[in-house]
Amino acid sequence: MFKTGIELKDCAGCYACIQACPKKCFSESEDIDGFFYPKFAPENCIDCKICESVCPASVKNSEKIKNIPLSANAFINANKDDLKKSSSGGAFTAIAKIFCDANYAVFGAKYDGKSKVWHDYIEDISQIDAFRKSKYLQSDVGKSYIQARDFLKAGKKVLFTGTPCQIAALKLFLKKDYENLLTIDVSCHGVSNSKLNLNYLHCLERKYGKKINSYIFREKISNYLKKSPQCSAIRFQDGTIKHESFDLLFRGFVSSLFKREGCYNCKYVDSKRVSDFTLADFWGIQEFDDTLTDKNGCSLLLVNTEKAANIAKKLKNFGIFKEFPMENATRRNYPLAKREQKINPLREEFMLAARSDGMLFALNKYVPQKIFWHRLVYFAARFMPNKLRTKWLKFFKLID
C-alpha cells in the first residue's frame, strides 16, 4: 500500500501528491521501464492525508468529480489549416479560440518531436500548435497544477487539457470549481513513456543507418496510394520521410504490451466524465451520416457541463457541429463505452525483451503481424463510398 492509500501499481503518475504535500515528502522518480512514480520520504510526514485527498486513482475521489455528459457531437473544423494540423477534427483549436478572448493561459502537453512530453502553458493562442497532435506518451506535469491555481486566483482564464486522470488530479488539487477554468480531457487508451519511445527510435536508427529528426505518431496524409488520418511519420536528418499506415509501435500500443500498469485499472474508463469537454476521434461517423466522413479527421466531442454547453453553442460558427445519440458516438471508443482494456498476458515478457534486446526486437516478436489480405482489404476500402466502405470492413470483421 502506497502512502496515498492505493496500491503502487494503480498509481496514475499524475504527481498531484508532489505538488500538494505541504512538507515536500514526495519527489519525482521513474521505474526501470521509464514510468513516472512519486518517491515518498516519510521523515517529514505529518500524516495530514492531503496526498490521499488529491489522488485520482482513489475510487472515492474519482466518483465525486464525474459528470454525466449532456450531449455527444461530431465536429469538423472549417479552417482547412487547423483541420490538417489536428489529429482529429480540430475541435480543440476551435474551443480554444472561443474561450481565449482575453487574459488567458492554455495548458497542454508539448512534444519535443522524439521522446519527451511535458505539460506547459502558453499565453498567446497563435502558439497553440505546440499542443496539437496525439502523443500516446505520459506527460510530465511538472508544476502545472500550482501554476494553473495561481493564474485562476489572479483572475486569469485557464484552459487545461490532459488525460482524464490529470484533469481529475487538477480538480482534486484545486478543491473548488473556478468559473474562469475550462477543462478538456482526451478519451485516453492508456499511456506509454518517453524512455520506451526513445528506445524504439534508436532501434530504427540502427535499422536504417541514419539519424531520426522526429517521429510523429499521427500525421494526416493523402496521395493516390494512401489516404489516412492515422499514419506515423518518421523524418530523417537526410530529409527523407517514411510514412507507415500499419505502424509497428502503434500496433504494440493498442495490443496493451507496454502501457502503464495503472492504465489497466483506470478509474476513468467510464461514460461519466471529469472535464467540461471530452475529445476523441469519431470513428465510423459515415455509418450515421453519409454526408460526413472520418477520412480527413472528425472529432467526437462530449459536452459534459453547462459551462461547456455555453461554448458549444458557438462551435457552429467554426465548422460542422452535429449532435448524435450517445450510444452511436461512443460505440467504437471503448474508454467512453466503459469497455476496460485488459492487460496483455505477454506484457511482462515483452518488457523484459525490450530491456535486453530493444523495443524493435520485442515488437517484432510479440506484436501480431498484419497478414497480407488485411492490407488488401484496407487498401480497397480507401476507394469506396462511405456506406459501401463500412459494409466491406464489417464483412471481413475488421470493424464492429
Rank of each mutant, 00 (worst) to 15 (best):
P368Q: 12
E287V: 14
K391R: 05
G13F: 02
C203Y: 06
K391V: 08
S228L: 06
K226C: 14
S256L: 00
K85L: 09
L196E: 08
T183H: 14
Y264M: 01
G239I: 12
Y145E: 07
T93G: 03
D290Y: 06
S53A: 10
R339V: 15
D185L: 00
A41Y: 12
I98N: 06
C14G: 12
D276E: 09
N67C: 12
C55W: 01
D290A: 15
G113Y: 10
A380Y: 04
G297W: 03
L279G: 02
L201V: 04
W283F: 11
Q19L: 02
C231Y: 01
T278N: 04
K49D: 13
C100S: 05
L376M: 15
S115W: 00
K84P: 07
S255E: 11
F26A: 07
D290R: 11
Y15E: 14
L196W: 03
A20W: 06
R382M: 10
N44S: 14
K272V: 04
F36E: 07
A96K: 00
L159P: 02
K259H: 07
A380I: 08
K387W: 01
K391T: 07
L204I: 09
I18P: 00
F350C: 06
T293K: 04
E30Y: 14
E30C: 13
H189C: 09
K49N: 10
R132G: 05
H243E: 14
Y378A: 14
F250E: 13
C11E: 03
F395S: 04
F250I: 14
E349L: 14
A233W: 02
T163S: 13
Y145P: 00
F173N: 00
I76G: 01
V106D: 06
Y334D: 12
H374R: 05
N61R: 05
L360Q: 08
C231P: 04
K66Q: 13
E306Y: 05
P368C: 07
K259N: 11
V274A: 00
A109I: 06
P42A: 10
T163D: 02
P229C: 13
Y200D: 02
A57I: 05
A72E: 01
K175T: 14
Q166A: 12
K24P: 00
K9R: 08
K64N: 08
T305F: 00
K66D: 07
K80V: 11
D81V: 15
D177E: 15
C100F: 07
L376F: 07
K114L: 14
R235V: 14
G284M: 07
V269D: 05
F379E: 15
N317I: 08
